[in-house]
Amino acid sequence: MKSLKIYLTAVLGSMVLLSANAQQDITTAELKEHIEFLTSENKVGRYPGGKINRKIVKYIINDFKEAGIPPFSKSYTQKFKAQLRFKEGDAPKGKAKTWNVIGFIEGNDDKLKHEYVVLGAHYDHLGMGGGPSTKSDKIAIHYGADDNASGTSALMEIGEKLKAHQSELKRSIILVAFGAEEQGLLGSKFFVDNPIVPISQIKLMVNMDMIGRLNSENHIYMGGAGTFPGGVELMKELGPPLGLTPLVHAGSVGGSDHVSFFKKNISVLGLHTGGHPQYHTPEDTIEFINFEGQKRVSEYIFQAIMKVASTDYKMEFIYQE
């Protein structure tokens, strides 16, 4: 009986170790699983509001919980109302109740843990299309695999790996899945106007919007790298070991959720793998996703965050055009 107990203890210990090791890896299988969920027919293009929106929020929350990532306070959600966009000449649309989803990984340095790096991605898309952002006249499901199921899946995978490396962190990490980006950056605007921490203590915002289409030249594009000291050099040097060719802009902050932070004098990085003909059309589907490339891009972003959050890296806002 004693030997059986020892055996079972050893087996259980091995299972826990294997689980912990698995959580440290960003995998193509998990990236694909997330994107399959987010782009499934019954998510109908992830339009803000309603039961479908709530199901997506619940999915992200459950993933954070499984990774051991707690909310910042009592709730993972930050509720707000989004004014929905409409084409000129169409009847105005009302407001939709939607949410930002927020996870928190606390740093360990007595002083620096009160400084924060925000990692974000918007989870919403265009629904059935027909709005002012749609690039196609088709009224059909706009799946948004690259825009931005790719960024949302990476947020969950990178968050999981950051949690596994929490003991190395000095600064704290806030993970945010933003709602209603396609309606005018509304989730990120609400977040910076209603911050969960003093806005001056957010030292960097890293945004992922369309990172699933790494091309044959392995280009990863980014703007805002010059908004913090040494950012351009850092983002260039992290690329080659991962087989990536970073195209780094000091400014060119761009038009996604990181803009809301930049307007509050917060250093930002906005990352993407480039535009494509399927952008904002029903053809932005999972078949076009380069999962191996997305994995490498996710690892690149993880390493950049660790460089800033696990060291005494000097952080200050530098304005760029």
Rank of each mutant, 00 (worst) to 15 (best):
W99T: 07
T27W: 08
K95Q: 14
N290L: 03
H249C: 13
V118E: 11
K5H: 14
P229Y: 04
H219N: 15
L12V: 13
E287A: 13
K111F: 11
K138Y: 00
E299D: 06
A121L: 00
G274A: 01
P277S: 09
D25M: 13
S75R: 12
G187Y: 03
E283L: 00
S14W: 07
T281H: 03
H142V: 11
L31K: 01
P70Q: 11
K93N: 12
K295R: 14
D110A: 15
G230K: 00
Y319F: 11
V16K: 10
T245R: 10
K189Q: 09
I174N: 11
K161R: 10
T152C: 06
H34L: 04
G226M: 05
V253K: 05
H272L: 01
I102F: 08
D284Y: 09
R85L: 15
P229E: 09
K295L: 03
M235P: 05
F72A: 02
Y279P: 12
I173C: 07
E321H: 06
S310Q: 01
L155A: 06
E66P: 07
L234G: 09
E182H: 10
S260C: 10
G13E: 00
M128K: 14
A22M: 12
G184M: 07
I202W: 00
T227P: 14
N53E: 12
E217V: 02
A177H: 05
D257N: 03
S14G: 14
G251P: 09
E233K: 07
Q183N: 02
G144T: 09
T28D: 08
N148W: 05
H114K: 15
N207C: 09
G251I: 14
Q183Y: 11
N207E: 08
E233P: 00
K32E: 15
E292M: 09
A177D: 05
G184T: 06
T152V: 13
V176M: 06
V232I: 15
G179D: 04
E299V: 09
S172Y: 03
Y76L: 06
M128I: 06
Y47E: 12
F178R: 07
F80H: 12
G103D: 01
